[in-house]
Amino acid sequence: MQRREHSAQFVDLVAACAQFVTTVGRIVPNLKGEHYDDTERDTIGRGLARVRSAADWIENAVTRDGAGSPRSRPRRSNPCRPAGGPPRRLEHHPADGRH
């Protein structure tokens, strides 16, 4: 039973990575020549930080002892993810520009 769950999680993880790369590959070529204001660039920057955080989390989970062990926690500090956990949603405060 445990091996079947492991296999299903593996397939889900591979599919999620492939879907992300496919989607980005469809969108990014159309960005050539587009201009973005500071707010839009900041929004994309926060999204990229979350993507990097999620990728680091995946890498740590599969190359170390697993997602929950102390040795698998990320080595660098990341404001988007508590150590050993999933990326968290960043709050946006439009009135004062804080995140």
Rank of each mutant, 00 (worst) to 15 (best):
N60I: 05
R71S: 15
R75S: 07
R76Q: 10
R41P: 02
C80R: 13
A83F: 07
G85W: 15
P79T: 02
P87D: 14
G66R: 05
P70K: 02
R76H: 03
H92R: 14
V62G: 03
G84T: 13
I44S: 03
R41H: 11
D65N: 15
L48K: 03
S69I: 05
C80G: 07
G47H: 14
S72W: 00
S77L: 04
P70S: 06
H93Q: 00
I44D: 02
G45Q: 13
N60K: 02
R76C: 04
P86M: 08
D56C: 04
P70I: 11
A54Y: 01
N78S: 09
D42H: 01
P82Q: 11
V62W: 03
G66F: 01
R71P: 11
G66E: 05
E59N: 13
N78E: 04
R75V: 08
L48D: 08
G66D: 02
D96H: 00
E91F: 00
S72N: 00
A67F: 10
S77V: 07
R81C: 09
A83Y: 07
R52P: 02
R41K: 15
N78C: 08
I44V: 13
P79Q: 01
A95F: 00
D42I: 03
S77E: 06
R52L: 04
R46G: 07
A55H: 05
A95C: 09
G47R: 12
A67H: 02
P87N: 10
D65L: 14
